[in-house]
């Protein structure tokens, strides 16, 4: 290893810690009580569920694959999935605005959205 390598590694670590702190501050400032869970499949909205209501939702995909979403205690998580890597299942519970659980193989994204502005859309959907 050369000196430049060490500098590179140090810079990368500092950048990522900086990004992490920034992201967390941004998230905390944007979380409110009436958040919703939005599920998108391949970029299209599949469904929106209130975060303060316990439920389990099976997300079925056209090709037979699935993800099971669980909402409890104001937190959302994916408890079962058909994908091979199970990254979405192993992702920790989410509850802050813009936090996500992603299943790359199934193109499923579970996202916390702040429901306040689009209350009407949420009801009529």
């Amino acid at each position: 290893m050369k000196r430049n390598d060490i500098i590179l590694i140090a810079v990368l670590l500092v950048v990522s810690i900086g990004l992490l702190i920034g992201v967390n501050i941004y998230r905390k400032n944007n979380t409110s009580g009436s958040a919703k869970v939005e599920v998108t499949v391949d970029g299209k909205v599949y469904g929106t569920y209130p975060l303060d209501e316990d439920r389990q939702e099976r997300i079925e995909l056209a090709d037979g694959s699935y993800n099971i979403l669980k909402i409890s205690d104001g937190k959302a998580s994916v408890i079962e999935a058909s994908c091979p890597d199970k990254i979405c299942v192993n992702t920790a519970d989410i509850h802050y605005t813009d936090e996500t659980i992603v299943c790359l193989p199934n193109k499923v994204v579970v996202k916390i959205v702040n429901g306040e502005e689009n209350d009407v859309d949420g009801m009529t959907r």
């Binding site: 590694i9 990368l12 670590l13 950048v15 990522s16 810690i17 990004l19 992490l20 992201v23 998230r27 998108t40 391949d42 970029g43 813009d98 936090e99 996500t100 992603v102 790359l104 193109k107 994204v109 996202k111």
Partner: peptide
């Protein structure tokens, strides 16, 4: 690419973790 395909720009939140993992595995 995942951000583009899934149209979910929030994935950028994983970037710091990805940088750290990439650094460690790279070393």
């Amino acid at each position: 690419v995942a951000m583009a395909v899934l149209e979910t720009e929030q994935l950028i939140y994983y970037l710091p973790f990805l940088i750290v993992i990439g650094t460690i595995s790279g070393i």
